[in-house]
Amino acid sequence: MRDNIVIKELKSSTTQEKAFKTLVEKYKERLYWHIRRIVLDHDDADDVLQNTFIKVYRNIQSFKEDSAIYTWMYRIATNEALSFLQKRAKFYDTTSQELQQKMIENIKADEYFDGDEIQLKLQEAISTLPEKQRIVFNMKYFEELKYEDMSAILETSVGALKASYHHAVKKIEMQLTKL
């Protein structure tokens, strides 16, 4: 089913349940991995993903369709994940950088991480990046999103995204080659 039809059905009370499930079915995996790369922990990613779809459902009436629903949902997911990290940093009364270090420490004992040494080093390197660069790197390198889509999601110019990605890659490569 095409997205514009799903949106119409989602806005109608008689068809919204079916349409909502169709939408979730279509995007759950992509959004899960997008969120997981930000929050790192599986259970946290699960919570944030659920909240993301609940927000999508609750705000669908205000979705004006001047952008693709795909980019709109990505934006909600990104905001939810970042907001989650901010709350957690506040809860632990720590800075976002210290929280990133703590999250990397937790990864080592995470039952849902079976990466090797280089993959762990990669996560450490990513965690040292500024927040925006970290997200841009993940979206481009792993999710292979188009710059135009990323621009719509992050509300940043394509040029700035390219520069951001370029700097991120260089920093990560430099850290990994220190091994």
Binding site: E17, F20, K21, V24, E25, K28, E29, Y32, W33, R36, R37, L40, H42, D46, L49, Q50, F53, I54, Y112, F113, D114, G115, D116, I118, Q119, L120, L122, Q123, Y141, F142, V169, I172, E173, L176, T177
Partner: peptide
């Protein structure tokens, strides 16, 4: 990049997303 691996090493519980839409609903 020749230096940066494409795989992250993250995994999920088996069948985790199978019934996700009903869980959210």
């Amino acid at each position: 990049s020749e230096v940066i691996p494409k795989a992250t090493g993250f995994t999920v519980p088996e069948g985790f997303l199978d019934d996700f839409e009903n869980r959210v609903w």
